[in-house]
């Protein structure tokens, strides 16, 4: 018979847990915003730019989607300094997460954008909208609304995947878990608690995304359902 579970041994480590939680939340919020912004740019350029730009961005998207996140992270953190580009762990985590989310989201957005008929854009121009206005209102926002659920899931996947940044010593939730279990030797309790926290984060993220979506895409609801 093994030892019983004892969660009280975690009490002295509340500050570490909070520190890890803060890092994970901040990293997630920031990279979700930068990642989605970059995704819009990549999706736009993959449709409208010069062939060589499209080709290059296609390469970036495919390489990112077909290699593990941990390898991307190691390449950025350990590999780039070999070229003389020195970055600290948290910056590497930020770059890796942003590039990862952007590659997946750009593909999702591209599907949403190509669902918009060309004629609509021309109609917008004919109504006197500028190119930027018509692109924004006719193509981009409806495309976003259309693929919003997929973007939510992808952002959550990146948040869950961020557990790996602990491996380059970023003090995130997982790092906190590893730190605590190395002190109190209660690995199972620690990881169980942290897993629960991730589950709540994923749940909370989905809820807040949906709340934001309800407001931002309010006028699209009719078209959606």
């Amino acid at each position: 018979m093994g030892p019983a579970l004892d969660f009280l041994t975690l009490l002295p480590y509340v500050s570490e847990l909070l520190k890890g939680l803060t890092t994970t939340v901040v990293l997630t919020v920031v990279t979700t915003l930068t990642g989605l912004a970059l995704a819009v740019a990549v999706a736009y350029l993959r449709i409208n730019a010069q062939p060589w730009v499209r080709w290059g961005l296609g390469g970036y998207v495919e390489v990112t989607r077909n290699t593990p996140f941990i390898v991307q992270l190691f390449f950025i953190f350990f590999g780039l300094p070999g070229l003389g580009i020195k970055i600290d762990a948290i910056t590497a985590a930020f770059i890796a997460m942003t590039l990862n989310l952007a590659a997946y989201s750009a593909e999702i957005l591209r599907a949403g954008i190509s669902a918009t008929a060309k004629g609509q854009l021309e109609a917008g121009r004919a109504l006197g909208m500028t190119t930027l206005q018509s692109y924004r209102h006719i193509v981009l926002v409806p495309a976003f609304a259309r693929v919003y659920p997929a973007l939510i899931s992808q952002s959550i996947i990146v948040m869950l995947g961020s557990a790996v940044v602990s491996q380059i010593s970023v003090f995130d939730l997982t790092y906190a878990a590893n730190f605590i279990q190395s002190r109190n030797f209660r690995s199972f309790e620690v990881y169980l608690l942290i897993t629960l926290v991730y589950l709540l984060l994923a749940f909370g993220m989905r809820r807040s995304f949906m709340l934001v979506g309800k407001r931002v895409f309010a006028y699209q609801q009719g078209e959606q359902r």
Binding site: I156, L160, G161, S162, A163, V164, T174, A177, Q181, S187, F188, Y191, L192, I194, T195, Y198, L199, A202, F203
Partner: peptide, 13 residues
């Protein structure tokens, strides 16, 4: 809804 890494840790540890 949970990281694969945590699932791995939970089973291993």
């Amino acid at each position: 809804g949970t990281p694969l890494l945590m699932q791995l840790f939970l089973i291993f540890f």
